[in-house]
Amino acid sequence: MATDTTAAADAASGAGMPQLDITTYSNQIFWLVVTLVVIYFVLSRVALPRIAAVLAERQGTITNDIAAAEDLKAKAAEAEEAYNKALADARAEAQKIIAETKADIKAELDEAVAKADAEIAAKTAEGDKKIAEIREGALESVKEVAKDTAQEVVAAMGGKADARSVTAAVNARMKE
């Protein structure tokens, strides 16, 4: 059928369908075999072992990393535990110190209070004594002044005041 071919290409291949042109088969098959052999050797000698190694290595790395992560996690937990323990210890220590200090302060305070009380009591007593003395002194002065005043008054009124009787009179009046 393909006799009235128009294109030069058709004349070269000899048939309408290049796939059915038997003269090119040997060429294609030869180069196909060469190609496949080359690809096979490249793949089986270089590429596939390399990719397999890379994949295996990655798997190994991932496994290692997971193990390392587990390790680190355990370490972190340990550290946390230690930290908590230290914290608790420190807290207990602090409580102890606080209690001790409180006790010390209380003792000191009590002592100071007692001392102050004693001092205050002593000072009060002293004050009382001084007041009594002053009162005594004042009474004496009053007697003296009264005696003098009485003698003067008596003298001024023209009488002669006997010192003894004045004193007796003053003493009697003061006792009232």
Partner: peptide, 8 residues
């Protein structure tokens, strides 16, 4: 179809 078109 191709065979009928091109090869027969």
């Amino acid at each position: 179809a191709l065979l009928l078109m091109f090869a027969v």
